[in-house]
C-alpha cells in the first residue's frame, strides 16, 4: 500500500477571508509575530499497489479532477 498526503492551498492573489479571521484571532491571543495566515486543506490518501510513479500520476489526476479547484487553488502531492 502507498500512503500519500495531498496539500491544497489557495493561490497567491486569491483573498482568503477565513485565513484573515484566523490571523486576527491569533493576534488577539497575543501571538504578535503572526504576519499572515492562509488556510488550506490536507488529504491523506491510501492507494493499493506498489508502483509509486503510477500513484503520483493518479494523485495529480485526482487533484485536477476533484480535490483542488485549480481556478483558485494549488496542490502538492507527497508520497509518505
Amino acid at each position: 500500500m502507498i500512503k500519500a498526503r495531498v496539500t491544497v492551498t489557495l493561490k497567491n492573489g486569491v483573498l482568503d477571508p477565513q485565513g484573515k479571521a484566523i490571523e486576527h484571532a491569533l493576534g488577539a491571543l497575543g501571538f504578535g509575530d503572526v504576519g499572515s495566515v492562509r488556510q488550506g486543506k490536507v488529504f491523506d490518501v491510501e492507494l493499493d499497489g506498489t508502483d509509486r510513479a503510477k500513484a503520483e500520476t493518479e494523485l495529480k489526476a485526482m487533484c485536477d479532477k476533484l480535490l483542488a479547484n485549480t481556478v483558485i487553488e494549488n496542490y502538492t502531492v507527497a508520497l509518505i
Binding site: 483573498l15 477571508p17 477565513q18 479571521a21 479547484n69 481556478v71 483558485i72
Partner: peptide, 17 residues
C-alpha cells in the same frame, strides 16, 4: 456550474464570513 467548468470563475466564502 462553476465547479463543472461550464462557467468561468469560482465562488468563495463570503468576505464577512
Amino acid at each position: 456550474l462553476l465547479e463543472s467548468g461550464l462557467l468561468p470563475g469560482a465562488l468563495m466564502r463570503n468576505a464577512s464570513l
